[in-house]
């Protein structure tokens, strides 16, 4: 308290009545209510923080899987052993991370934290790419569901119990726990899937370019010949038309248009490859790599 107040002439101003007691600690009728609200907000912020952390790691691991897959040169059910081994360890790490956040993103919280879960898009990209390199087909959402469930299940280890008794929400979590124990699922939204597949086209383009350059053949099924089995050029065309024909979602028109444009470019790069192969494939010296700088940075986040 700073002395006393003065009036216009600088004389000490009289207070009417006794001096009020020293300032109360901020405690009033509203304090309990605000304390409850604070706890709710804290819970939300803490949960969000945990999700973001895990999400960042999952994104990094997914990218590593994609890089590993880019070292493959042909489409084949059987991946090279060293690459398969690397992917397995990365997926195991992803499993653990997914299992820790799975209980946090059940029900209403799935969309609440959707923006903090961009990692799922990246993971879809890795999984679709893996699937493509093995089977030369586009994985469907239905095929992805069991894979995701499997990942989460594998990530749950006995030590997970300790992780779940996180101090932040003892009361709220208690009734839900039995349920979650049985089926903690990390569901993919349609956007996770579609945007993951958008990015897949970029990976396919890169794969087509390197594999064509290094093996001298256009990647494709079976014997890898030019004519009979389907090649990656056709696959790219099909994916391109697939996206062109889909109606644009209202929610994220801008992002959609952007991704579609990148996909168009990828399709054209691959079709150019197909043309080059057809017209002068055999003239090209083995090991010659076309200049890839310039076009493909758009997909990188």
């Amino acid at each position: 308290m700073s002395g006393f107040k003065r009036d216009w002439n600088g004389n000490a101003k009289k207070r009417d009545g006794p001096k009020p007691p020293a300032k109360k600690v901020v405690q009033n009728q509203f304090t309990p209510m605000f304390e409850t609200l604070r706890d709710e907000l804290d819970q939300h912020h803490d949960r969000r923080e945990r999700i973001i952390k895990a999400s960042r790691d999952i994104t990094a691991l997914s990218k590593k899987i994609i890089f590993a897959l880019q070292r493959i040169r042909k489409i084949d059910e059987e991946l090279p052993k060293n690459i398969q081994a690397e992917i397995d360890t990365r997926l195991a790490d992803i499993s653990k991370l997914l299992a820790t956040i799975a209980p946090e993103i059940q029900g209403i919280n799935r969309y609440r934290y959707a923006r903090s879960l961009m990692c799922l898009e990246e993971l879809v990209e890795a999984l679709t790419f893996l699937h493509y390199l093995k089977t030369q087909t586009l994985i469907t959402p239905e095929q992805l569901t069991p894979i995701m469930e499997d990942l989460v299940r594998k990530g749950i280890t006995p030590s997970e119990d300790v992780a779940m008794t996180d101090a932040s929400e003892p009361a709220a979590a208690a009734p839900e726990q039995p349920l979650e124990k049985e089926t903690p699922k990390v569901s993919l939204t349609q956007d996770d899937y579609l945007y993951g597949v958008f990015d897949l086209t970029g990976e396919m383009m890169r794969f087509a370019t390197t594999s064509t350059a290094l093996t001298g053949t256009m990647a494709g099924g079976g014997a890898g010949g030019d004519e009979q089995p389907r090649t990656i050029v056709e696959d790219m065309h099909e994916l391109g038309s697939f996206f062109e024909m889909l109606p644009v979602g209202q929610g994220n028109r801008f992002q959609w248009e952007k991704k579609l444009e990148v996909t168009r470019q990828s399709v054209q790069k691959v079709e150019r490859l197909g043309y080059d192969r057809t017209i002068r494939g055999s003239e090209r010296p083995k090991g010659w790599i076309p200049d890839l700088s310039g076009g493909d940075q758009a997909e990188e986040e």
Binding site: Q190, L239, F242, L246, G249, Q250
Partner: peptide, 22 residues
């Protein structure tokens, strides 16, 4: 050899996008 894109996938996704718009 299976097709690149499952034939039912397109309609499935298209109808979901349309539902979202509605």
């Amino acid at each position: 050899m299976p097709p690149m894109i499952d034939p039912s996938l397109f309609d499935q996704i298209k109808s979901k996008i349309e539902e979202d718009t509605t």
